[in-house]
Design a protein around this nucleic acid. Sequence first.
DNA 1: GCTTTTGTTATAGTTTTTCTATAACAAACA
DNA 2: TGTTTGTTATAGAAAAACTATAACAAAAGC
Lengths: 135, 135
Amino acid sequence: MIVVLDVDGEVPLYQQLRDRIVEAIADGRLSAGDALPTTRQLAADLGINMHTVNKAYDLLRREGLIRLARRTGAVVIRDASTGPPPDEVADEWEERARTLLAEAVAKGLAPADVARRVQRVLEGFPAGSPIRPTA
Amino acid sequence: MIVVLDVDGEVPLYQQLRDRIVEAIADGRLSAGDALPTTRQLAADLGINMHTVNKAYDLLRREGLIRLARRTGAVVIRDASTGPPPDEVADEWEERARTLLAEAVAKGLAPADVARRVQRVLEGFPAGSPIRPTA
DNA sequence: GCTTTTGTTATAGTTTTTCTATAACAAACA
DNA sequence: TGTTTGTTATAGAAAAACTATAACAAAAGC
């Protein structure tokens, strides 16, 4: 998996890394059971510090997306096929989504256009097709 | 307009304030031409520093949502009825939306459920109803 | 004109966050 | 046994966040 970080961007490096991995899980490039590079390996590949990678992994762990094994490295434990999250998680997500959707509407994007764009992005995620092995 | 800020939250105060104002514009509580409190007044009301309010206003100004008049205070210049933004703005928004949508899918929310939730939020914005005065 | 209000800008200080650098330890594997 | 890895600790530098004061010019009301 190739990850590109914007060192000069406003978004913290660990947040960017977390976002890229989340996107990789969403679009199927990473599935439950897949292993991620070790923190030292990924840090070396990206040219950043080990603790920055560690912080990104820790975020993903607290979100319930990965598990940090001793020697195996990080392992994906939850993906689009793992089943729905608790209502609490979904509701908290919706609250954050509300702010982003409000921005689009406030800037003049018609709600129908917003919905169209959202739909198009969602169709890019393989979870949209119901044909998936249960394993 | 009543604004509540979470002082102990992880989101910066100026960002929270900016978000609440964007939401107020999106759901019609603020319209083009409406005046916002002066920075000093709002800072006093919220019990925060003037510069923190100033930073929020500056964000909104750079987003093209408000205008900062000398004595009139801040004025809303763009809302849901002002017309669509440039494609560039819409595309940049979609890129950020992609990350948030990926998170929902990665955590197991079915794309159909995500679309449903988005639809429901959008319907809460009055721009959804096409019957609006052109003024 | 004069006064007051307001946005703007500047300086400065504290706290928190971000990122890096080193190091040590225990668990896990070959 | 020896090596790798996650984990934890400490420490430092840089940037961000927030506050506090102050001064200035533009704009409005008097």
